[in-house]
Simulated assay, not measured.
Amino acid sequence: MNSTIRLPGGLADVAGYPVLLRELADRGWSRADLEALTGRNVLRVLREAEHRATEPLWPTAPLR
């Protein structure tokens, strides 16, 4: 498992994400870029993992 030894001030956990995103927006990142950074990439990775999986990642029958 990889871990980060040093983090920028204010980014020790996800509570700092709004500050990071505001700074990136102020530096010219577009809304689409910010969306890709924060969510779309995760969804893309999950879809690719599901596509390559030999077993379903999600239940195919209703849970009881």
Rank of each mutant, 00 (worst) to 15 (best):
E48T: 05
P56M: 10
N2Q: 12
L43D: 12
R31T: 09
L63E: 14
A36D: 14
R22D: 05
G10I: 10
N2W: 08
P59S: 06
N2A: 09
D26G: 15
N41F: 10
P59N: 04
R52D: 08
R47S: 07
R40E: 13
R64F: 07
A53D: 04
P56S: 06
R27N: 06
D26W: 06
S3M: 09
A25P: 02
S3G: 15
G39K: 08
L7M: 08
R31Y: 09
N41L: 08
V14I: 11
L21P: 00
E35R: 14
D33K: 09
G28Q: 05
R47E: 10
L37G: 00
S30Q: 03
A32Y: 02
D33F: 01
T38I: 06
V19R: 13
P59A: 01
T38G: 03
R64T: 10
A15L: 12
L63I: 07
A36M: 14
R6D: 13
A12N: 11
P62N: 05
G16F: 02
R6Q: 13
D33L: 03
H51Q: 13
D13N: 15
L63S: 11
T4A: 15
W58P: 00
T60C: 07
R64D: 14
T38M: 10
R6N: 13
R22I: 01
L24Y: 04
A49D: 06
D26E: 14
A32N: 11
R40S: 12
L57E: 07
R52T: 03
I5K: 15
L37N: 00
T38C: 12
R6C: 14
E48Q: 11
W58L: 15
L21D: 01
L24A: 08
T4P: 00
L21W: 00
R52S: 07
V19K: 14
A53C: 04
R44S: 09
L11N: 07
G39V: 05
P8G: 09
A32E: 08
D26A: 14
R44L: 05
S3P: 07
E23T: 08
P59V: 01
E48F: 07
T38R: 06
G9I: 03
T4I: 10
A36Q: 14
S3Q: 10
R40K: 11
A15T: 11
A49R: 12
N2T: 05
L46D: 14
E50I: 03
R22M: 02
R27H: 08
